[in-house]
Amino acid sequence: MHLITIFVNKKLVIQLKNIQKKFKNKIALKNLNLEIKSGEIYGLLGANGAGKSTTINLLLGFIKADNGSICMKDPINNLKIKRDKLGYIPENVNLYPYLSGIENLDYFSKIANLHFNKSQLEEILISCGLQEDSIHKLISGYSKGMRQKVGIAIAYAKKAKIYLLDEPASGLDPYSSNELSILLKKLKNQGSTILMASHDIFRVRETCDKIGILKGGELVKEMYSKDVTSKQLEELYLDFMKN
C-alpha cells in the first residue's frame, strides 16, 4: 500500500499529448500520448518504423511535431528540462576513435561547460561500469558495450534528468546487455527518468517499470512489467504485430 502511494505521488517528467508527425506521405506518429513519471524506466517496444526513434528525436528536439505538445519537467523544481539536461544514448555510440574513453568523456563534458579533473573523470567512468584498465585506451579498441558505458557516463557527468536510449541493447552480448540493465536501474535509483526504445522484449521486461507497444505510430498497449511475464509480453507483442 505504501509503495503504491509513493508511485502515485510521483510527478510526471515526460508528457507527450496527441503527437502527430508525418514525413512526406508517411505517418510516423499518430495521436501519441505518453506519460513517464519521475524515476521510471519506460520501455518502448515496436517493430522497425513503428515510431520509436521518431519519439526519441522529438524529445531531443531534432524533429518538430506537426501537432500535439511535448512537456519535459524537472520533478523537483517543476522547471522545463532543456536539451542539455537530456542524456542521449544512440544504438551505436560512435565516439571519437582517436580519443581514449576518458578523453571522450572529458571532451563531451567540456563542450557542455563541465570541467572535471582526471580522478573525477575516472570515477564517473568506473561508476558507469567501465573497467579501470580500459579507461585510458583508445575508443577504437572498445566493444559496443564499452562505448555505450562511455555514452552513459557522458550523460551521467552532466547529471542528466532524463536518459533517452535508442535501441541500446541491440547487438550487445547477453553479459553486456545485463550490465546495461544493472546500470540503468542504478540510474533510476538515483532519481533519473529513462525512456528506452527497443526490440528486445526480454531486456525491456527485465529493465523497465512500464512498457508501451508502438505500432504504426500509435501506442497500442501500455502495461507495468511487474504485471506480465516475459513469455506473456512476447505473446502480447506478437499478437499486436500480427493484427
Binding site: P90, Y96, F108, I111, G151
Partner: peptide, 13 residues
C-alpha cells in the same frame, strides 16, 4: 553518419 552530431548538440552545442 556516426551519430556524433546529435550527441554534440545534446551536450548543449
Amino acid at each position: 553518419t556516426s551519430g556524433r552530431l546529435k550527441l554534440l548538440i545534446v551536450q548543449g552545442n
